[in-house]
Design a protein around this nucleic acid. Sequence first.
DNA 1: GCTTTATATACCTTGACAAGCATATACTCT
DNA 2: AGAGTATATGCTTGTCAAGGTATATAAAGC
Lengths: 133, 133
Amino acid sequence: MGYTKRVESVFEIIAEPNRRAILSLLVSSHQSVGEIERRLRMPQPTVSKHLRVLREAGFVESTVDAQRRLYRLKPEPLQEVDAWLAPFRQFWSAHVDALERHLDRMDQSAPTKRKTGRRRRGPNRKPDKGETK
Amino acid sequence: MGYTKRVESVFEIIAEPNRRAILSLLVSSHQSVGEIERRLRMPQPTVSKHLRVLREAGFVESTVDAQRRLYRLKPEPLQEVDAWLAPFRQFWSAHVDALERHLDRMDQSAPTKRKTGRRRRGPNRKPDKGETK
DNA sequence: GCTTTATATACCTTGACAAGCATATACTCT
DNA sequence: AGAGTATATGCTTGTCAAGGTATATAAAGC
């Protein structure tokens, strides 16, 4: 041990379905390993191993309660994911606007007045030729 | 060739760093394969392979422009990630509130026992016995 | 037609990782 | 101390995905 700690990105951590399940379970309140094991119906070593990964990546932390260990969520890593997502949200709203304008054009009788600035995402857009194989 | 339509979860798709880079590149505007190759400095087959994965997972779509293919972002899959994150945002705000209250209490007492990294959780918690190997 | 440019795919090798099982550690209670 | 409970870790194995290299497809220009 003790080599360079393999710093996996937060995205690799949450790529694993069982780990996402554990995180979703912990969002409401903390849980012991046994409770997680029971509620998610996965073998105990599997739970422990995933918890270890989550702990070392900072997604969770544990406190000792007699023989039990209570795991609880920590916010930072998932906030990092949220931060990565931020630029794309901009894109979504623009995309929705474009869709609205398109629908407006199709429905030429619409009397509703919208005051939305025109936004185009690129100069020189050629007509879309599908290309969905 | 058999098409093994392996339906990977959106999380597995974005676990790959190069794919995240491609997505981030496409968020501003569409790009051809060659531009992606050049700007991200990765070999062309690598780009094409990742684009294929992204395309089949619905993250991007392509249009033909002569010999080129222009790839652009599609919103839905990343919105799915965003949706998964939603419950955790609730948790963050609660957590931040609790931390603020806690820091307020600390400032009232504690004669400059500032030691970076010291952290206690919640009110009347048992002493934390390390548990970070 | 042939050559150049642009992109996709096939094949192979390598490495990472998750599951399964067994076992070790640690705490509690009688 | 010994038994029971709760959790962690070691080891092995199978799977799968990513990168590298070579090649195939396709359109453009001469």
